[in-house]
Write a protein that binds this DNA or RNA. Structure first.
Lengths: 202, 202
DNA sequence: TTATCATTACCTATCAGTAGGTAGACTTAA
DNA sequence: TTAAGTCTACCTACTGATAGGTAATGATAA
């Protein structure tokens, strides 16, 4: 199959970035997981920075697809918001946090090209959330003061932070018998974000 | 002077972790910045993990000192909260984000000893904030629903996330002529956290 | 006082291992 | 036959780490 190995490499890279960070995985790691040799990884992605760019683009297109589908199929703002949160929840339950968050942390060590790719992603990222928020406010379901852009930035910050802290500091973390993680911290923050949206200043 | 070089190494390590991340700096980086040889860094800290532990402990004791001083000297809860935020603001203005946040992101790549050290730090970290929040609520200045522990987790998440995003996505980031960073995103999130504390559900 | 010894804080040189990366031969399927 | 994909085998640069040596300092005992 054309592109099968290439796709495996890409998906593995994305998973490794989300579990260990960009500067903490190597071509050897990829090769071992895909069951090919290091040189073959280089055949598909000549340099690590190339793979990095591809990983961001692939992750973005996956998220774009989900967000567009969500916008088309789910008209209830609260359920749409829940599904938005659900996207992060699902990753975290497998020990994977947001790729944008991880690579943003390492921003000072990345090439200009990757930085630009991330910036582009981040802009879309917040647009989706602004869209959900404004839809909810228009329909009278969400209340918040100030601009939607500010609120989106606030929520995004809280989610990114919650993902990091949840994976690091939950009791019994590390994957359990069924290979999922304790979600306690994440859920506690997610609940508060939602309550703020629903109950905010009278 | 006894310990002068050792302290320079430690301070440099902390700065490099906060600007680049733990897995993105090397003993060579430290050696070059302190103007000694790599082997001399090993003389003071036999292994990188030893240096990592020492960095977390040193950072913790610095923060502890500031927090205790703050508690003793500043009795107005709002001003105390502002100073708490100011601690993160100051770091970010030099391109440095929270060491706990950075290393938590890399948690899966760290030794058990460093993980324990971080967990210990995180527990104190949230205790300080809970203390500020409850003091403010007791004095009738802060309003929030739910437990103080939940609120502290929420605020901590938002701050950690804001630090990451602010450094990565502000316009014109990178250090400017006066060697400081654009703080826009961080301030926008910080303002909302504060407003929530002051105006929340009636 | 001075010769002896230990300690501190560095050095040069080197280690084995791993990083990302390349050249060229081999395999396989269209 | 040709092109795609994978391999072996290698490279250079760098990783954390160690061995062994050297001044300088300080303590100690004859």
């Amino acid at each position: 199959m054309k592109g099968e190995t290439q796709d495996k490499i890409l998906q593995t890279a994305i998973r490794l970035i989300r579990t260990k960070s960009y500067n903490s995985f190597s071509y050897k790691d990829i090769a071992d997981e895909v069951n090919i040799k290091k040189a073959s990884v280089h055949y598909h992605f000549d340099a690590k920075s190339t793979l990095g760019i591809a990983a961001v683009q692939e992750y973005q297109s996956k998220v774009s697809y989900l967000m567009d589908k969500l916008k088309a199929e789910e008209k209830d703002p609260l359920k749409r918001f829940d599904q938005y949160i659900g996207f992060f929840r699902h990753g975290l339950s497998n020990g994977e946090i947001c790729l944008v968050g991880v690579m943003s942390m390492e921003i000072n060590t990345l090439t200009k090209e990757i930085q630009d790719e991330l910036k582009n992603f981040f802009e879309n990222y917040t647009k989706w959330l602004v869209d959900i928020l404004e839809d909810g406010r228009d329909k009278g379901m969400f209340q918040y003061n100030g601009s939607s852009a500010d609120k989106a930035l606030y929520i995004t910050s809280a989610i990114e932070g919650a993902l990091i802290l949840s994976r690091a500091y939950n009791k019994n973390n590390g994957p359990s018998n069924n290979n999922t993680y304790n979600m306690e911290y994440f859920e506690r923050v997610a609940d508060q974000i939602k309550n703020d949206l629903l109950n905010n200043p009278c």
